[in-house]
Amino acid sequence: MKKVKTVFKYIFLIILTLLFLFPLIYMLIGSLMPNEEIVSMLDFSKETYKSIKLIPDAFTLDQFYQVFFRRAQYLLKFWNSVIITFPTVIGQVVVSSLAAFAFAKLRFPFRDKLFFVYIVLLILPLQVTLVPNYIVLDNLKLLNSFLSVILPGTFSAFGICLLRQCIKYIPDASIEAARIDGASYFRIFTGIILPQIRGGLITLTLLCFIDSWNAVEQPLIYFSDRSMYPLSIGLADIGNSDYGIIFACGVMFMIPPLLIYLYGERDIESPFTTSDKL
């Protein structure tokens, strides 16, 4: 009976895994198909698939050849994504870790009330803050520049809440001992706090990277110059490009988040494993 249960469990998990992996597999296969073969699978009149082939009739690297050598606009969009994402991630990690340390270990007036405001900000969906952000950025003359997406992403409440949960469980005794020895708060932060929240930092880096890398709404609204659009918008513009090239761009687009995940896979900590009653 236990064996049967185990078998069913594994079958269920395998089916679920295949369901989740199917779009990724289809994208990889589609990037190796000629464009004509991809189009032959589609029924444009009913906007559905006539058939789905997972084994192409003819393998070709022409799509990658087009993306890497002949159509530089996709490479430029990739670098736009890099320009938007990397400063946002670095900024958010630095700002969030410092702010989380203050909220978790330092005592100042209205600390808990201010943190409650950050929790409320977490609950607000992005779309609610788009218009107020637009007005602020317009007044700061930052519209149509990369800073219009980088700055709001850098000062995000999510990272502060995540890292506060990690820092909260570091014993106060170690901080007090360091204070007695004459260490400054910055020295305590870099010498005691940062090494112990490494998992949280990597988790924040990965989540922030994925969020910024896939950003579509903010660049669409804050950039009027189409040459500044990141590749996430280029991929969404599927109607104006060859399908095979979109698949190849998708593969290229997938590589940086995959590398970051592979780098930090072992160190990722779930924020839910150390829960706190607020």
Binding site: F68, F69, A72, L76, F78, W79, M252, L259, L262, Y263
Partner: peptide, 16 residues
């Protein structure tokens, strides 16, 4: 992973 990432970004940079 770092080696692969460096090669990937340098190659894309040169191609761009």
């Amino acid at each position: 992973v770092i080696k692969i990432a460096v090669i990937f970004f340098v190659a894309l940079g040169l191609l761009t």
